[in-house]
Nucleic acid binder design. Structure first.
Length: 114
DNA sequence: AGTTTGACTAATG
DNA sequence: GCATTAGCCAAAC
């Protein structure tokens, strides 16, 4: 039996975590949103909200996931590089989501929980 | 190998 | 409300 000499299994574990998070995001229905923190908790990773954002930003596996339906706690669209935030706003508006005070989403209406 | 950097969040003043 | 702090930790530098 071959001993594990290197860390060639670690990436698979990371990838599993990524996939678990991404598959949750995929389940958010159109016209609804979820938060980074809730996605993380639902994936069994409480207090790992930053990981969710980082995956959406970096992972090549994030192709095709409705990233625009993930918002910050309190229903705010997170800042980021480029015009992604505006794009997210547009997509959410296109799905019928209304903003309050021009920048906040009412989670009591639009929040989707896994 | 140590430090910095975030698509985050809850708590506190 | 806004600023700060602390917790979080994988990637990038």
């Amino acid at each position: 039996m071959r001993l594990i000499e290197k860390d060639d299994e670690a990436p698979a574990l990371c990838e599993g975590r990524h996939l678990r998070i991404l598959s949750l995001i995929r389940r958010i229905p159109p016209g609804r949103v979820c938060t980074y923190g809730r996605i993380a908790s639902a994936a069994g990773l409480p207090r790992r909200a930053r990981l969710v954002g980082r995956i959406l930003r970096d992972s090549p596996l994030a192709d095709g996931v409705p990233w625009h339906r993930v918002v910050g706690a309190g229903g705010r669209v997170s800042r980021r590089r480029g015009s992604g935030a505006q794009e997210q706003r547009n997509r959410l508006l296109a799905e019928g989501i209304e903003f309050e005070d021009c920048d906040r989403i009412d989670l009591s209406i639009y929040l989707w929980e896994p």
